[in-house]
């Protein structure tokens, strides 16, 4: 119990002290709000403008989650395809690594060209940025089924679908859920980047507009919102992971991160 309190209290204390030091430095050095606003000023901005900020926050959350859902669905499908055959794994892996190493900002203009500025490019950017870790993890989970177990199943004349459903997919679940918390954070990065470049809504766009009018506390308020959303999504999917794939939790750190 004491350990638990310590485990939760230490990070909270660290965050609080960072804010306090930040506040103190700004106050003591007389740093201008245009350079680096004090945390208290940012929090006031958040409180003061909440009703104006809320639609942007919702827009970002919404594009992130839709993109993440699409990315997850496509990722699982590709992961199953690639993981169930050695040949497919060896063939497709280099291509996937190639695609995933393209900076995602570079594809936003293309999406804008195709679909116009707005929600669609943001959703798609979020989707493609989060596919890769899911594919890799699902494929790894499936490809690492023990060969003896596969032999046992084949000896029972199990169909490919039987093996997929009873062995490979459950086997891949811990990898999948471990990849989800990575993927959701990436999707979030994707949608914000796309909003910044080409949208008239969302936290990313709001920050662009605020910075061009030198409203620096509002820019930082946007950062705070993004940090809060990012942490919240990560925590939610960590909790889901612990719930759903608890049997594998005795082995920690299954996820192959990118």
């Amino acid at each position: 119990m004491l350990d638990l309190i310590r485990a939760k209290a230490a990070p909270a204390a660290l965050i609080l002290s960072v804010f306090l030091v930040w506040e103190a430095v700004c106050a003591a050095g007389g740093v201008s709000d245009i350079l680096l606003p004090r945390p208290s000023a940012v929090l006031y901005e958040l409180y003061d403008r909440w009703w104006a900020l809320w639609p942007h926050t919702w827009q970002t959350l919404y594009t992130t989650l839709v993109g993440f859902a699409i990315g997850t669905a496509v990722g699982v499908l590709l992961g199953v395809l690639i993981g169930s055959s050695r040949l497919a794994y060896d063939t497709a892996y280099p291509l996937l690594v190639g695609i995933s190493s393209i900076p995602k900002v570079a594809v936003v203009p293309i999406f804008v060209l195709w679909f116009g500025a707005g929600t669609v490019p943001a959703v798609l950017t979020a989707a493609i940025i989060c596919i890769f870790p899911i594919v890799v993890n699902v494929a790894t989970g499936i490809a690492t089924v023990e060969p003896e177990l596969e032999d046992v199943m084949k000896t029972l004349r199990a169909s490919k679908l039987d093996i997929l459903w009873n062995v490979q997919l459950p086997r891949a679940m811990p990898y999948f859920f471990a990849s989800l918390k990575v993927a959701v954070t990436l999707a979030f990065v994707g949608s914000v980047v796309a909003e910044t470049v080409a949208s008239n809504r969302g936290v990313g766009n709001m920050m662009m507009v605020a910075s061009s009018s030198f409203n620096v506390p509002l820019v930082f308020a946007g950062l705070f919102i993004l940090a809060g959303l990012g942490v919240a999504l990560y925590l939610i999917f960590s909790a889901v992971e612990r719930r759903v794939a608890g049997w594998a939790m005795r082995k920690t750190d299954l996820a192959v991160t990118t």
Binding site: E146, E148, L149, D151, V152, T155, L156, N166, V167, P170, R171, M173, W247, A248
Partner: peptide
């Protein structure tokens, strides 16, 4: 046919 190996390969879940 039934088959058993040295490695029990029971499904952990």
């Amino acid at each position: 046919i039934g088959m058993a190996y040295q490695n029990a390969t029971l499904l952990p879940w």
